[in-house]
Computed example of a mutant assay.
Amino acid sequence: MTTKILLPIDHTDDRSWKKALPTALEMAKLYGAELHAVSVIPEIIQLPNLPPNYGSGAKDFVHQKLAAVLEAGGAGDVPIHIEQGSVYRELLKLAHKEGFDHIVMASAKGDFPNYEIGPNLARVVRNAHCTVTVVRD
């Protein structure tokens, strides 16, 4: 039975939440489950010409953008997680560490043979310890 659902969202790509957010909300309502949203900020490579604090404030910025997406989608009360690193690795670590038993993830547009299955989605589906629902665009 589903009790805790994780919804990865990329605030820069509405395909990551346009259909997946309503689906996740409906599933949470149906199962009486908690819904949480997560956004992963890719690792920032420290180059010699960048200041040491380069990228500070990124988590706050992404949190605000994600909160706006959720509010617009009728999910303003959904808890938000902001992680930093490899997208699929951070999703899998969070899902395992926090006891999520379901991940709802949007597909991405792509070309044959990887139509709508990007590398992060493929790795999450292959390696998740829990059920993964793919919401196709």
Rank of each mutant, 00 (worst) to 15 (best):
K18W: 04
L35M: 12
F100I: 10
F61C: 03
P22A: 06
T12V: 05
N53G: 06
L50S: 09
A75D: 08
L66A: 06
E98L: 07
V132I: 07
P51M: 11
S86N: 14
P42M: 07
L21Q: 04
G57C: 10
M1Y: 01
L70T: 14
T3Q: 14
T3I: 00
A33K: 10
Y31S: 08
V78H: 06
I44L: 14
Q64W: 02
H96D: 15
G74I: 08
L47A: 12
A95H: 12
C130G: 07
D13F: 04
L47M: 10
H81W: 15
M105K: 06
L50D: 08
E98G: 05
D101K: 11
G74W: 07
T23D: 04
H102P: 03
G74P: 04
E26Y: 01
R15D: 01
D14Q: 08
C130P: 08
K59L: 05
Y88A: 11
N127Q: 11
M27P: 00
K29F: 02
V87D: 00
L7Q: 04
L92S: 03
L7M: 04
H36S: 12
H63P: 00
K59S: 11
P8Q: 03
E116M: 15
A67I: 14
L50K: 08
D137P: 13
G32F: 06
L94Y: 10
H81P: 02
G110T: 13
S39I: 01
P22S: 07
K19G: 00
V125M: 09
G110Q: 14
A67N: 01
G110E: 12
G118P: 02
N127L: 13
G73C: 07
D137C: 08
L7W: 03
L70A: 13
Q64G: 02
N127W: 06
Y115M: 14
K18Y: 05
L121V: 11
V87Y: 01
